[in-house]
Amino acid sequence: MTSDSHALPSNAGDHGHHAHDAAAHGTLSSYLIGFGLSVVLTAVPFWLVMTGAIADKQVTALIVLLLAAVQIVVHMIYFLHMNTRSENGWTMMALIFTVIMVVIALTGSLWVMHHLNTNMMPMHDMSQMP
């Protein structure tokens, strides 16, 4: 890992700045840009669903999901100040690990349970039962 080999020699000198690195605060403009973006990214999906602007529900759902993913990234960058440099990249490492775990847990659960549902109850739909 390049980050490790780079971190070792400069470790001692880095320490005074550690608290500062993590802080990596935004500026007023970066907060406002993030806020503006998230207002738009929140308003559009609500508008799409509330007015039913797009007749096809599948397309609407796809757009809503996509906008949510973009908004999460916007929040990560502008509000949580994620970058590859803070804490020598360890926050990013922890985030990548977590994202992998989350993707496995979510897609795995939905996939397995969906197949169980379709294979166990071929005759009727549970929601139609009394």
């Binding site: 608290a19 922890a94 985030l95 979510l106």
Partner: peptide, 23 residues
């Protein structure tokens, strides 16, 4: 280590574990 030098990373890892709960 100066006091609190690792707090932010530690708290970030707590947040990631919280993220797993929500997942």
């Amino acid at each position: 280590h100066p006091e609190g030098a690792s707090t932010m990373l530690g708290f970030w890892i707590y947040l990631m574990s919280d993220c797993l709960i929500f997942a």
